[in-house]
């Protein structure tokens, strides 16, 4: 590849990744200005490190890894901390058994509520609620959910981004989603979205 070709190729790929890069940076830094700086810095770093990209098909995970490393080394300490949500007791990479337990025990109310006719109404409120619930997730879970669920990376690719084994992504996805659901359920309860009718639900 001649130099102008490489640059055009790089430019095309960055164009396709801009929204994803910004989305990841924003959810990590929780600040618009820092997110923009982080993305610009990561793109500059990616260009200078282009020789380290072994497989062109894996440009996205490679680029996200650069952004994540850049975040950790320079932006993490500046990132805005949200109101803590009582996640202190959470072990990041613990056993999975308790999650299965939680999923099984998770209130049927939640299921019933989700399936009830108010769902459309609830959905319109939930967009923002979901974003703030994601913002409040501990970082390890937040980034896993963003990479896999939002950006559609495989566990292998997400593992490459974060430099952890794929099994770690698997368990963080379980925990991350469980925590999100718990937060949304609590929020819906507090916001009065869940009526007693719904809680009694279609169990009968």
């Amino acid at each position: 590849m001649t130099d102008p070709d490489t640059k055009a190729w790089f430019s095309r790929n960055i164009e396709q990744c801009m929204d994803s890069l910004y989305g990841l940076a924003l959810r990590l830094t929780r600040s618009n200005a820092n997110a923009e700086d982080l993305v610009a810095e990561s793109v500059a770093k990616a260009w200078s490190a282009l020789a380290t990209l072994e497989d062109k098909e894996r440009f996205r995970p490679w680029l996200f890894r650069i952004l994540h490393n850049c975040y950790i080394s320079e932006y993490r300490k500046k990132s805005v901390r949200p109101v803590e949500y009582g996640y202190d007791d959470i072990v990041v990479d613990g056993k999975e058994d308790d999650i299965t337990g939680f999923l099984i025990e998770q209130p049927d109310d939640f299921l019933n509520w989700w399936g009830n006719p108010e769902r459309e109404f609830a959905n319109s409120l939930l967009g923002e609620d979901i974003v703030s619930a994601i913002q409040m997730l501990p970082e390890a879970f937040r980034i896993a959910v963003l990479l896999v669920n939002v950006e559609g990376l495989s566990y292998d690719e997400a593992a490459e981004v974060l430099g952890v084994p794929p099994g770690t992504i698997r368990s963080r996805m379980k925990r991350g989603r469980t925590l999100l659901q718990k937060a949304l359920w609590q929020h819906a309860n507090e916001a009065g979205l869940i009526t007693d009718d719904v809680k009694r639900g279609c169990k009968s």
């Binding site: 960055i14 801009m18 994803s20 940076a25 939930l126 974003v131």
Partner: peptide, 24 residues
Amino acid sequence: GELIRKSAKGKAPEKLQNRLRKLI
């Protein structure tokens, strides 16, 4: 999962898009 995907998807502000194009 679908709702999370839709809600959390980022959109690069135009200012950033221009900044990146200039940078490249």
